[in-house]
Design a protein around this nucleic acid. Sequence first.
DNA 1: CGCCTTTGACCTGCGC
DNA 2: GCGCAGGTCAAAGGCG
Length: 281
Amino acid sequence: MDSSSWVDTSLDLNINPLRVIKSDAPVDAERFGMPRKMKTTFLDFQTKPSAKEETGALEEELNRVSEENRKLTEMLTVMCENYNALRNQLMDCMSRNGERELLHGPSKKRKSAGSINNDNNIAVNGNSESSSTDEELSKKPREEVIKAKISRAYVRTEAGDTSLIVKDGYQWRKYGQKVTRDNPSPRAYFKCSFAPSCPVKKKVQRSIDDQSVLVATYEGEHNHPHPSMDAASGSSRGLPPGSAPCSASLVSSGPAITLDLTKSKSSNDDAKRFETKNRCT
DNA sequence: CGCCTTTGACCTGCGC
DNA sequence: GCGCAGGTCAAAGGCG
């Protein structure tokens, strides 16, 4: 399945961090190959008498970037909605086709959470009914909430980064760490600490194939708004709107969506500033 | 002082 | 029933 045929990911944005300088410097083509020239250009930029014009240009640039950021957020929201709608349709079809199989299900016991993950996350986004029988639910009422939603996120980290921290905007509290048999790198266990009653748990472990990739497994659904949304409405605990893992791909039952936001320098700086203030994993 | 991480002990499910 | 492995608890210590 070619996911690119589903969603057009070409944003065609006018991203140019050096635009302000460019507007005042006609030597743009030379600048990248000639650092000295760039320096003089920068000095010229600093010593220009029309500071008001520069301030105005900067404000204009800031507004433009903010507008692009807003458009990106809207596009991402629409993409997520479309993706969820398609996935729900797929799950609907699968549940219809699998109903007979489920009724005459050959498995007496579930394999464990691991088998669910290996099935590429059958229980996703509220479609948990298909992953557990009534018999199991009656036997294990404790697990009903935890298994309501299981999803994975793959996050690429720096080569030397050994921490098991996945920045997803939520606030997590680590409550355990284990070395598992199938993977030499330890697995960290997190609980959502943004809301005391939030049942969501997260397991983070380095990929056995690629040590620079963190695999975050989310279990359950947040019963509170995203901290970034909350931050937008005045809270100081979450990340600012638009902040996200630098490079993350979300995988549930569908195609992987990779977000690479490392290009946006200015927004990243802002995010960094907030991250140092608000320790969000 | 409160929140977080660390880490060993304990609990629980599963296979044999 | 036993052993193993994964998951959770909770005390201790660190940090801002």
